[in-house]
Design a protein around this nucleic acid. Structure first.
Lengths: 270, 270
DNA sequence: GATAATCTTTTTCATAATGTGAACAGAGAA
DNA sequence: TTCTCTGTTCACATTATGAAAAAGATTATC
């Protein structure tokens, strides 16, 4: 996998590597919003136990978020507003999340009989965009068990790391670390760089139980019109169904096809 | 339409009627986020022309939003992150936005041959949840032209106002006013109350070109399990196709059915 | 049903933290 | 070069904070 040097013509901060000032008030408000979102509603008292500031101060944040219509209040409990859902929907328009991309992923899953995923690369992580599994009963998108993935222990993530320059990889690892999520997770930085070097000769990356026990997958990056990395596609499943050689021999071609198709969609959308 | 007195057992602030303190820093940050979202990306310079504060200050807000992963930066332009889209998706789970509700609305549109909409009632406004039109070529959800509606000039909105207590209606009108959006929009508060009084004897509200010229529709509220108002359903179309009497005689029954079905879905979801 | 207890929210106010803007510096582009 | 745009520095003044108290509101207890 050749390092993509985008000549700095395209400048995406790998991490929001901000050197300037951060506003603590906004950070506190957003943290409260996040907590309410993740807990599907919280009361003042519950928040008091989670946040390190006084109740009166928390109230000020809640008032502000209410007034800005990011929250609603019902029976003393604060919930995230439907308006936030609409804002999120609007944010989605910028990303390749349409019917055509879902088609491609579904086809990949069907052709291989394995689970296929398309993720977006952002702030040094992969965010679940669309995923499906051929085994599923109905076939439609199930509730995603997770929405954010690390790069170091996922197939698409390792493929992306393999394409990035050393400095960018370092920045990402500095920020997110290499948390262990499975017995096989590579948690040593030097070891990871060794593995990434091996990808030089390949066009894809492999994850062998590093994300979850018994799960093997292969992944590739997906590029935007300017050659920048937009995200990644991966396909894989239980190890007992997929030897690594089978993965690399039989599934890789389907994976390349899917990635190319998504890149075509991205070109059309411009 | 009988006034629903929910005995204060269910307490939804009609408007986020906050008497307490609001945090200007958070408000400024959220305003910047909103501007970036609505303009599909902005540069520092562009923001400088829209916001009343110094560039350095705007930078601080941008840094904070970047760091909190609400924004990304590409080539000097700030965009809303995909992560915000995921947060919004998560917020959506709390609301009746599933396949079953879309079914009901589609069926209402098909049965009547008119456009049907389901909206969520929040902070004194109606937010587009799902809408469809039978005339459409493909039949699938088209891009929504608008996502927020006022109550005083929409069918579902007037139906909701008709059910609320006078004090709540006053609060909403105080906050949002009665902006004119069409020749026929009711912009006089007393006149609006007269019209609302007429609904006492009916079970639905009518909008007769008050939202847009040539558009007539009828609407009803949708209630949650505790009797609180969750949103509204409306159905209607061009006036040349629909006399008011036709609307009220032929379409009303379908509308009631749809509203009841959505309320059933809400009961199941608990 | 009355009283107590708990929780939420808004006050006030003194203090300290922190957001702000002007000026400055740096990076491209013309 | 000069111009334009972005981002940082720093002194100052705004503003967020927490403690305490009190008022509402709800729930628990007798």
């Amino acid at each position: 996998m050749k390092k993509i040097i985008i000549d700095r013509e395209y400048d995406t901060d790998m991490i929001g590597n901000v050197t300037g000032r951060r506003l603590k008030t906004t950070e506190a408000s957003l943290e409260i919003l996040r907590l309410i979102l993740e807990h599907d509603g919280l009361t003042l008292n519950e928040l008091d136990g989670m946040v390190d500031s006084s109740k009166s101060s928390i109230c000020s944040h809640l008032n502000t978020l209410l007034d800005s219509r990011y929250l609603i209040k019902e029976n003393g409990t604060y919930y995230v507003s439907f308006r936030l859902a609409l804002l999120g929907e609007r944010a989605r328009h910028r990303y390749p999340t349409g019917e055509d991309v879902r088609e491609i992923i579904d086809r990949l899953a069907r052709a291989t009989g394995q689970e296929a995923n398309f993720t977006i690369f952002e702030h040094g992580r992969l965010l679940a965009c669309y995923g499906t599994s051929a085994d599923e009963n109905a076939g439609e998108s199930s509730v995603r068990y997770r929405s954010e993935y690390h790069l170091h222990n996922t197939a698409a993530g390792k493929a992306i790391l393999g394409e990035l320059e050393r400095g960018d990889v370092e920045a990402i690892l500095d920020h997110w670390g290499l948390p262990r999520e499975s017995e096989e997770t590579i948690t040593d930085r030097d070891r990871l760089f060794e593995v990434l070097d091996e990808y030089e000769s390949k066009d894809y990356a492999v994850v062998d139980e590093e994300f979850a026990p018994g799960l093997v997958a292969i992944g590739v990056p997906v590029h935007g019109v300017d050659g920048e990395i937009v995200g990644g596609v991966s396909v894989g499943g239980p190890k007992y169904q997929n030897s690594l050689t089978k993965l690399e021999r039989e599934l890789a071609e389907h994976l390349f096809t899917a990635a190319n198709e998504i890149e075509s969609v991205l070109r059309e959308e411009v």
